[in-house]
Design a protein around this nucleic acid. Structure first.
Lengths: 343, 343
DNA sequence: CTGAAAGCGCTTACAG
DNA sequence: CTGAAAGCGCTTACAG
């Protein structure tokens, strides 16, 4: 009872014996790709149910069948949006009998090679940092790829899926909303990275921010951005420095995510400014924590659940009929501004 | 250039040809388990580097080698603690060339069978809901299992790893701290589940809460708990109902996680109570959002990073020397109360 | 010291 | 209609 038993012992041979058919027959009823005498079929099905048999997924994949295993490459596992997204992907995947592997976006060349040796049926890239070169390399293989468009992927050529999450338009809407409130000195708070890296203009949020400022003829440059911070404290210090020593007093703060926005809110409040009278604050992601700040945080909602479903639908379409596509396929989703009290 | 190439084409045979050795030799240099003529060895190594060869992990696993693939079963993918944990696990795993699959805790029998067919080298269970029966079934196999002790697993017998995250002592410390502040009417806010399920007493946090109340001779029963809610609104409504219609006015709220605590804080504030003068609030997880509420939230910190490393270390020990263990192995971690202004 | 061979658990073309 | 056989890419006992 307490003894260790091998992880899996029953194989196709056991089923064949139990059902008194040849092993070949067992394979054909499992794969359903050949006529099988209905009596035999029944016996096989009963044997499978009785012994709780599951074909070895690895052996099948070796013979060219799908592994039913996807890889998700993320850069923001700790972010608030990530959970909802992966959670939705998981439930859809489970329904379709897929497993999902999760991986941070490791930068070395070796990473791609490791992926190769795994026979994933498809790869989802949700990272904003993964080198474009690596992405192109993956797209060039026969493995279906779905890109979450957190930055500009127009330079990637070939057949792949693209989920446009609406970040660019969402960012422009944020700026427009602040502009309508009479805000002219907007400050963008970029993500915090342990390595101090900053978003470039391929980042849709930042690009939307700049483009909309430009459309209004407002200055849009380095002064409007705090980026490259390695920690919360560094960001708060940079913000204080900007106000006290660079003479840039923002009347609005645009956080790349809610956490950035809330850090900004805290910082300007401690500098003695009133939110939203003196400074408006807007965040991105509409995380569940927006409701707990004072004032509550207005935020751009990204439809995580819908994105999760869209990713999986597209991935499964690519897996099932990869050949029938000759170019990239896209899906567009919209963001939605959730107004609270910080604007 | 733009053409699709097969995901992986080079095999051991290619290396053998390139290095002008037999295929057997290639295997032996890869596995390092037999003397190989050093000239041949060198040629093989060069060929591997040149062709960027990686042995097919599936084929190796079929022959009994490790797959280098672990499964993490979670229930709280959206929770705030989850990101830090999985992030740490990922970086350790990458170092050791493991992949991690992530899966929510599906309840059907079929789930365990699906896992069986995948040849995972080890399974990490981080779910508080996964049926004990299923866990015992997994432990009974030869696959190493590591349990994150979010609830009482003392009934599970056999060889497995157990990471004691200190929740029980942490919960008692919370109660003790509140008691020292003169609080006597403590209310525990349990997690929200779409299916309306509630924690039972195998949940270490809840058990710690009750046990410490009992030690103080304070009433500890259903009245002190709000559980089984399906949504934020339901929880807030339940709290209001308790105060207005059940005559239970808490002077302290213990949130099973920070989000619960913050919901509770919001609710009692809107009922007109002052925090912390009238009601103390304490949370669990010490999420990054604790600093943004008014007042800021005191919270019990769980050492996510350390837990992640401990899980992986234990897992690798079990994988490498499973036979040398005859009973479960444990690792203990401590929680730490982070004081802010809500107590 | 090293190669040919058996075999892991499967799928499916081939040959009745 | 259906079985024996080849083969996916490997590992390692076996036999020199």
């Amino acid at each position: 009872m307490d003894e260790k038993i091998a992880l899996r012992t029953i194989t196709r041979a056991d089923i064949a014996k139990e059902a008194e058919v040849s092993e070949t027959i067992v394979s054909y009823v499992i794969n359903g790709n050949r006529y099988v005498n209905s009596g035999k079929r029944q016996r096989v099905e009963q044997a499978i149910a009785k012994l709780k048999y599951r074909p070895n997924a690895l052996a099948r994949a070796l013979k060219g069948k799908k592994l039913n295993h996807l890889l998700f490459v993320a850069d923001d596992i700790q972010g608030d949006y990530f959970g909802k997204l992966i959670s939705e992907i998981d439930s859809f995947a489970y329904e379709k009998a897929y497993f999902i592997s999760l991986c941070a976006d490791h930068m070395d060349e070796d990473f791609v090679d490791r992926i190769y040796s795994r026979f994933f049926d498809g790869i989802i890239i949700g990272s904003a940092n993964f080198p474009l070169k690596n992405i192109q390399r993956l797209v060039n293989t026969t493995t279906p790829i779905v890109l979450l468009e957190v930055r500009d992927y127009s330079s990637i050529t070939g057949v792949y899926g693209l989920i446009n999450t609406g970040l660019y338009r969402g960012a422009r809407t944020c700026v427009r909303t602040l502009h309508e409130r009479g805000r002219r000195n907007l400050l963008y708070l970029d993500k915090i990275n342990r390595d101090g890296s900053r978003s470039d203009l391929s980042d849709w949020r930042l690009k939307g921010f700049f483009d909309q400022l430009n459309e209004y003829g407002l200055p849009a440059n380095e002064r409007n951005v705090i980026a490259g911070c390695r920690s919360d404290d560094e960001l708060v210090a940079a913000l204080e420095h900007k106000v006290r020593h660079e003479g840039f007093i923002p009347d609005a703060i645009f956080g790349r995510n809610d956490y950035m926005a809330l850090l900004g809110m805290e910082a300007v409040k401690s500098l003695g400014y009133n939110v939203p009278t003196d400074v408006s604050i807007i965040g991105f992601d509409n995380s569940r924590f927006c409701r707990f700040s004072t004032p509550t945080l207005s935020s751009m909602e990204i439809q995580q659940k819908e994105i999760g479903r869209a990713i999986m639908k597209m991935m499964i379409a690519l897996i099932d009929r990869h050949d029938s596509f000759s170019t990239r396929i896209e899906e567009h989703l919209e963001t939605r501004l959730v107004m609270r009290s910080s604007i």
